[in-house]
Every structure is written in structure tokens, then in C-alpha cells.
């Protein structure tokens, strides 16, 4: 994963609460290998009409949403299933920042692990941005500011996640540097709670 500190791009509005991960990517697409790309699955059932054709009225299908890198939406975005595929769908569709008043916890962790920023802003501020869309915004991880024509807002982000997005860290490499401490911990755990290592099953 490559790190980043600043993104400038088109923001598009999706003024809907509770967009859960089942909507972000319906379950039927999830047996697809990632190498095939998940962008076309993003919000599939919201984007398409009953006839299977793209709904031209849907926010993300409108011409002004083309090339959008920032999605602005309402509370509880990404609630539900732990499917990381929901993040793959956003990232593969070109989205790098989602702005909302609140996010599902697991979604947020998955987002950070894929370089996608879940930026939290107060609901009132989100409404201001929604009303201004489509608009070009700059999102800066150093200053934790979102700026656009005539507007500027500070957003919240956990410091650990901020560092991770900026550095593009790979957790496995970081963790393997602590291999000795982990091994010592495992030995100690075995002594204190030997039942953690299940005995061969009887019968």
C-alpha cells in the first residue's frame, strides 16, 4: 500500500443514512477474485434499476460524479458485515476519501488497511458539504483539514490511523520485527492458560 498526505479531487454527494456494507457490495459478487476488480460492484443495487440498467438519476451515475475521488454521505456509513470487499469496491471505483458523521468500526479498520480515509465531521458540517456538491475539495492528512471554495473544516482521525495512511505501512512487516516479543508472550501464555492450546479431542 502506498502512503499519501494530500488528495485533491471531485467530491460527490450521497445523502443517505445507514449505507451498510451489504449495499456497498451485495453478497452475490463476493466470490470474485480481487484481481478482477470490484469497482463495478460498488452500490450495485442502488445504481441499477429493476431492469438491470444503470439508473441515470442515481448520484454516482450523474455526469458530475464522473472521476469523483471523495464521497460525502450521512451517518453510520459502512455499518454491518466485516466484508473488506466493501472497501475494495470503493477503492476500485476510484474513491479515496469518504466523509460522514459516523462509520462502522470494522469498515473503518478495513478502509485504513486499503489507504481509504474515513473522515469524520459533525453532521451539520456534512450537510453543508452535501449542499455544496459536486465540488472540488482538498483533503490533507498533515493538517487534518478539508478545504474547498470558501470552506475549510477540521476532521477527526485516530492518530494511529493517520500515521498508517501517511506511511502506507504494511502491518505484517511491522509485526514481524517484534517476533521475539511475540514468541516470549506465547510461552508465558501457555504457562498461565494452558487450555488455550486445545488437547487432542477425545472420542
Amino acid at each position: 500500500m502506498t502512503g499519501w498526505t494530500r488528495i485533491e479531487g471531485r467530491a460527490t454527494a450521497l445523502p443517505v443514512e445507514n449505507i451498510d456494507t451489504d449495499q456497498l457490495i451485495p453478497a452475490r459478487f463476493m466470490s470474485t477474485p480481487r484481481s478482477e476488480g470490484y469497482g463495478d460492484f460498488l452500490l450495485y443495487d442502488m445504481r441499477h434499476g429493476d431492469d438491470g440498467q444503470p439508473d441515470p438519476e442515481f448520484a454516482l451515475n450523474r455526469p458530475e460524479a464522473k472521476g469523483a475521488r471523495i464521497l460525502i454521505t450521512r451517518r453510520n456509513f459502512g455499518a454491518g458485515s466485516s466484508r473488506e470487499a466493501a472497501v475494495y469496491a470503493l477503492v476500485d471505483a476510484g474513491i479515496q476519501v469518504v466523509i460522514a458523521p459516523s462509520f462502522g468500526d470494522i469498515f473503518s479498520s478495513n478502509a485504513i488497511n486499503n489507504g481509504l480515509l474515513p473522515a469524520r465531521l459533525d453532521a451539520e458540517v456534512v450537510e453543508v458539504l452535501l449542499a455544496a456538491c459536486a465540488v472540488d475539495l482538498t483533503v490533507d492528512l498533515e493538517s487534518l483539514m478539508i478545504t474547498g471554495p470558501g470552506v475549510s473544516f477540521a476532521f477527526e482521525l485516530d492518530p494511529v490511523w493517520r500515521q498508517k495512511l501517511i506511511n502506507g505501512w504494511d502491518d505484517i512487516d511491522l509485526t514481524l520485527a517484534h517476533a521475539d516479543e511475540i514468541a516470549a508472550f506465547a510461552e508465558d501464555r501457555k504457562e498461565r492458560a494452558p487450555w488455550v492450546w486445545p488437547a487432542p479431542v477425545q472420542g
Binding site: 466484508r83 473488506e84 472497501v87 479498520s109 488497511n113 494511529v160 505484517i172 511475540i182
Partner: peptide
């Protein structure tokens, strides 16, 4: 106990540990 995403599942498979706040 808590649910995790695919990147974290890979991390646990590889290290038997997980980074958490």
C-alpha cells in the same frame, strides 16, 4: 471477541497477533 476484515485476517494467519486501539 470481535470481527475483522481480510487484511487483518491475513495478519492473524501470519503472526497470531493483531494491532488494536
Amino acid at each position: 471477541s470481535f470481527g475483522i476484515g481480510a487484511t487483518e485476517v491475513a495478519h492473524v494467519l501470519a503472526t497470531q497477533t493483531i494491532w488494536q486501539n
